[in-house]
């Protein structure tokens, strides 16, 4: 078993109201020096057997068709050791 992590983030040009709300809360809590916050999603996929290039291609397909909407989001796939 291996874990493949898919991170999904809104594209930089898409406004992220949730990230803005989190950013707005920081000064109220006394945290300074944070210039921006973007909120995304992290998916952990438990892959059976070895993570081959083929399996990774399949995961990328999953990321593209279901986990992210390519119109508004980017994704990144990595194998967690």
């Amino acid at each position: 078993m291996a874990r493949v992590v898919v991170d999904v983030m809104l594209k930089p040009e898409i406004l992220d109201p949730q990230g803005k709300a989190v950013h707005g809360a920081l000064p109220r809590l006394g945290f300074g020096g944070i210039s921006d916050v973007r909120q995304g999603k992290r998916f952990e996929l438990e892959v059976e057997g070895e993570v081959t290039e083929e399996r990774l291609a399949e995961v990328r397909q999953i990321a593209e068709t279901l986990l992210s909407n390519p119109v508004i989001e980017d994704y990144a796939v990595r194998v967690e050791q």
Binding site: L15, D16, P17, Q18, K20, N69, V71, I72
Partner: peptide, 17 residues
Amino acid sequence: LCESHLLPGALVRNDHQ
């Protein structure tokens, strides 16, 4: 309809939250 690609674009969270 947008997720199905029958229409272009997407709907995102209201800008005023």
